[in-house]
Design a binder for these strands. Structure first.
Lengths: 151, 151
DNA sequence: ATGAAATTGATAATTATTATCAATGATATA
DNA sequence: TATATCATTGATAATAATTATCAATTTCAT
């Protein structure tokens, strides 16, 4: 997303790009493709702005999410994670390894068919999220070895 | 899922099928295809067992989830929801309407391709969850009318 | 029967998030 | 430039969901 596109959205909603919000945005840009928790954002933002508080981080994340600058999601851990929304063009295909927790993204867009199927029924699709739980190649191999020795 | 299949899994993990657990399981069976919160389960379970506590409900839900008797998920509302896991054969395709909150399920299994793609790369797929955010036909129509009158 | 282990309800503790509020900062207008 | 207005902030209290603790009870295998 372009810098001025972000500014435009903020202005339109009467939001100001304060130092704190800039810091939060910087953190998200520094971590393109990552999915950060509010706590992680706080820690990183304090490098740039030592006095920033957790409430402001939550508020900033909420502000950016509401403007679709960030994408807010959860991986069933009891907390939210945020990422720059231009990273995935609103296609959230995540693969999570239950062993090492590594999160990767699937590029492919194949949901077209299902969405078409729904639209034919009168639905109006806004967004979707797909999460696949799978051992990553590294952990799958480790697991295989472990299983063998347990026999 | 068969009754004795459930018993077998419980025994294998040294869990006992107590009155409280039976009540929780009954509630889930009474609400096949629904996605209940712990609080909702508590209320319904109290009909069958007035003294059951919230802690026991959480423990029972956790117990059944760990045995794949229940499926635990979240729709980004800051809490978990549970459903009988034989309802969807581990295919979690949910459509959520942002307007009325109605949750429906997509039958179709079309994720085969993506999973194959991942397995070719060495991943070992365990499960997946797909959530589609879409106005349901009813709300889509209402929204259309509203948009027209706003012009 | 009895001892070990599982389970329970009540409740305290924890975790993530949201709300409150007085103080500060920015902006538009006079 | 002064000032009134409104957004924003940090600190912290409040809330909501979940988990941990613990003494009492129940269950099961012996």
């Amino acid at each position: 997303m372009m810098e001025n596109e972000i500014m435009e959205r903020l202005e339109k909603a009467n939001y100001r790009l304060t130092g704190q919000r800039k810091a939060v945005l910087e953190v998200m840009k520094d971590n393109r493709g990552q999915h950060l928790t509010a706590e992680e954002v706080l820690m990183a933002a304090r490098e740039k702005m030592p006095n920033i508080g957790i409430a402001t981080v939550y508020r900033s994340l909420e502000c950016f999410s509401s403007l679709d600058i960030l994408y807010k999601t959860t991986f069933d851990e009891g907390k939210y994670r945020y990422e720059l929304s231009d990273q995935h063009c609103h296609q959230h295909h995540h693969v999570i390894c239950p062993n090492c927790g590594k999160i990767t993204e699937v590029e492919q867009d194949f949901l077209f068919q299902v969405e078409k199927h729904l639209e034919d029924q009168g639905y109006e699709v806004i967004d979707h999220q797909l999460t696949i739980y799978a051992y990553c190649p590294k952990c799958a191999k480790e697991k295989e070895i472990e299983d063998m020795s347990n026999k």
